[in-house]
């Protein structure tokens, strides 16, 4: 039984292997970009808008509101990163109900890649917000003794982020596979439905946690500044 889409290799060239994870990621990317491009091609700035534009606007403004609520900051700066995390994971998980499709989020490589992105984004946003010196000072607070623990905490939460998403999606796939062999008709459908739900929840959790980490790095003294917005 194939558990990870990494194991399905379509093409290999030297060390690089074109596996299902990358292919399905591309499919998700193309799908998202294509839908965005098609809808935004006929963009309306008036009060009459198409259903698809309305859907995308609701989605984007919903993400912005969530970022604002969690981060207590102006959301525009974080929208591309957090929004893309949510949309990519959500679409990758929803497509899981198509037969033959394997969610790239079911691969630990993908979730690790995403977690590394968050891992990198947190200090980048922090430094961009406070400057490198002020940001790095957080690691030695309250005393320099806390430095190793802070670093360990940073790394461990990144790993937790990666494993949580991977475990949830992979387990869903595995459970469906096991149930298919035991009770082929009814339960897999229920599990697929459940999979859709957990897929959406995971996308939400991943994006929210990423925002929480970024907010933690930038909100050392944002309570007062946020009031400006």
């Amino acid at each position: 039984m194939t558990i990870s889409p990494d194991d399905i290799v379509f093409w290999r060239w030297g060390l690089f292997s074109l596996n299902a994870t990358i292919v399905f990621t591309w499919i998700v990317m193309i799908l998202l970009t294509l839908i965005s491009w098609l809808v935004m091609r006929r963009l309306s700035t008036g009060t009459k808008i198409s259903r698809w534009q309305n859907l995308l606007e609701v989605l984007v403004s919903g993400i912005r509101d969530q970022i604002r609520e969690v981060g207590h900051q102006k959301p525009d700066k974080y929208l591309p990163f957090i929004g893309t995390l949510f949309l990519f994971i959500a679409v990758a998980n929803i497509l899981n109900m198509i037969p033959g499709y394997m969610a790239p989020t079911g691969s630990l490589s993908t979730t690790t890649a995403l977690a590394i992105c968050v891992f990198a984004a947190v200090p980048l946003y922090g430094i961009a917000y406070e400057g490198p010196f002020n940001y790095l000072r957080h690691y030695i607070k309250p005393t320099i003794l806390m430095l190793p623990f802070n670093i360990i905490g940073e790394i461990s939460r990144t790993i937790a982020l990666a494993v949580r998403l991977y475990g949830n999606i992979m387990s869903g796939t595995v459970i469906v596979a096991i149930l298919l062999s035991l009770t082929p008709y009814f339960f897999p459908v229920v599990m697929q439905l459940l999979g859709l739900l957990t897929g959406m929840i995971q996308a939400y959790i991943f994006a929210i946690l990423a925002m929480v980490y970024i907010a933690a790095a930038t909100s050392a003294h944002t309570e007062s500044t946020y009031k400006k917005y």
Binding site: W26, M29, T110, T112, C117
Partner: peptide, 10 residues
């Protein structure tokens, strides 16, 4: 390698 590819993809 897939991880790095996925980072780039992302």
């Amino acid at each position: 390698i897939t991880v790095s590819a996925q980072i780039i993809n992302f």
